[in-house]
Nucleic acid binder design. Structure first.
Lengths: 210, 210
DNA sequence: CATGTTGGTTCACTATAGGAAATAAAGTTT
DNA sequence: AAACTTTATTTCCTATAGTGAACCAACATG
């Protein structure tokens, strides 16, 4: 193996192209991802269909996974290749900030059917945007239009019950305590189905154009 | 992580939405690139160090190249993975996902003073990690250690009252509905000051976004 | 303690990827 | 048209990726 690759390298150099070696430690990266998600090898095995032993060896760089295996990995772990290949880079991060919002002291944004209350609105440069929404009772006339925005959204019902419409799926009835996470560029809309107003808490990611 | 719930989860995900697996024809794509550059198999062999025969078989999808081989290919051909994987096709942006968690159906992580319930835990590769925490009543003995993790955290009190300690600042008393946003690499800790258990909802960013 | 249980590694084996050389199928040259 | 030349495919063999089972911690539980 080493003799051959050496030769190959020599040839590549001779042909005028730099070897351009990837210093990538695939296994290590993979392990990072697995641990970040609190997954055990068994979990990953179930998700990908690869044997525990195989996964172990891949993580320890004892074998070079087949491309088919890599595909199973990226599909099973829900990542994409660029992500897999580029180790997490540090970013210049601001730190040590905090911003308190007392109940009801958020920034109010009333609209006909909703009342949005922006939380932690004094802090700029956040990665998440949290807000509370009051959905007017019995607002189940046709919603006018899908809401869409880049990124992801997490939503939990604090009070009342709502119906969440999302593009591509059937509507969902959500009651107090139910929560949902979705890609928010997928159209979505909210109506209240309870007698009283419904209250939901949402957190959106901010797009990465910074 | 219980095997059963995990499996059920996998099933639910699978049934809720098509697994976005790439049905990619790697060989074909590779051949396109080769021909576009007017390269012969021999040329590519010289550039990559892979045998002509191997290349032929890869192009005809008779074998699934090893990841090491793929790396030789991308380096030798001077392309990058995304390019290789996305022909004229749209970039594989994950989108259109959604993951419902009914009240109380999150992934439970009990600890002495807290009970964490991970929400939307079935969805991998999220930018945010939402979870509900029950802080045991009267847990105001000294907290053992600061909690720290990269990124930012949003927190809102759903029930009870808590005291939030943060490094560099004085502690804060938070009551139902109060919320706070802070850089979570700053040490922080939570104790309950109410008679009943306190419930808080937290959302953390995950590190390493672009 | 012994006795699971759980997460990870190692082992022995099978399946398959990768390489050298033979083969096929073109196009060139004479 | 036969004798080369050039390029892709196939063959046969070796190296190695992938698997299930055994093995080994570390932790719980009786």
């Amino acid at each position: 193996m080493s003799a051959n690759t050496d030769q190959a390298a020599a040839l590549r150099i001779a042909s005028g192209r730099k070897p351009f070696v990837e210093p990538l430690r695939l296994g290590e990266r993979l392990k990072q991802i697995r641990l970040a998600n609190q997954w055990t090898l068994e979990d990953v095995s179930r998700r990908t269909g690869l044997a525990r032993s195989t996964l172990s060896k891949i993580e320890n760089d004892q074998i070079s996974p087949t491309f088919a295996a890599v595909q199973k990995l990226i599909s099973g772990l829900g990542i994409d290749l660029p992500q897999l290949l580029s180790p997490p880079k540090l970013q210049s991060r601001t730190s040590g900030r905090r911003d308190l919002t007392r109940s009801g002291e958020g920034q109010q944004h009333p609209t006909p059917t909703y009342e949005h209350e922006l939380l932690s609105w004094q802090l700029a440069q956040k990665r998440m945007i949290p807000f509370k929404t009051i959905v007017r009772a019995r607002s189940f006339d046709e919603f006018s239009e899908w809401v869409r925005h880049d990124g992801e959204e997490f939503l939990i019902v604090l009070d009342g019950t709502i119906r969440l419409y999302t593009e591509f799926y059937e509507p969902l009835e959500l009651e107090q305590g139910d929560s949902i996470y979705f890609d928010s560029d997928m159209g979505h809309a909210l109506v209240s189905t309870s007698i009283a107003d419904a209250i939901v808490l949402s957190v959106c990611t901010r797009g990465e154009a910074n």
